[in-house]
């Protein structure tokens, strides 16, 4: 797995680069694990492949899977909000300046 942070070792490609680097950032967050729930739960078919309990005449199989849609919305919204708080804390400035490792100027 590549680290989201530029490693010193990949400097070889730097010379070819005509685009300034983006600031170092990480898209890793413990909150991301929450997204495993709406990925894994819908795949555990034996868990919900049954008739009872029914709801408004719907077998469990159907209403449970539709409620997974709501669960998906809930988890992605939570992770989205948590991510916004996180990035606001580490990047107070909306437009960070050029990267310190940005060795080339102009690039043309």
């Amino acid at each position: 797995m590549a680290s989201p942070i530029a490693r010193p070792g990949d400097g070889g490609a730097d010379a070819r680069r005509a685009v300034p680097l983006a600031p170092r950032r990480s898209d890793r967050s413990p909150w991301n694990w929450l997204l495993a729930v709406p990925i894994v739960l819908p795949l555990l078919v034996p868990l919900y492949n049954r008739e009872d309990p029914t709801l408004f005449g719907w077998p469990f199989f159907y209403w449970f899977q539709l409620s997974l849609v709501a669960l998906g919305v809930l988890t992605t919204s939570l992770v989205y909000r948590a991510g916004r708080r996180g990035s606001a804390a580490t990047h107070p400035s909306p437009a960070p300046g050029p990267h310190p490792r940005d060795e080339h100027d102009g690039g043309r």
């Binding site: 990949d10 070889g12 300034p20 680097l21 983006a22 950032r25």
Partner: peptide, 28 residues
């Protein structure tokens, strides 16, 4: 071969100087 992308590219945000909306058609 050589990777044409940098690790920092993958998390670039819209505000970053490296992120482009529309390359200028007259520019290179």
């Amino acid at each position: 071969g050589v990777d044409g992308t940098a690790d920092t590219d993958y998390t670039a945000e819209r505000e970053d100087p490296s992120v482009r909306d529309l390359p200028d058609p007259l520019d290179g």
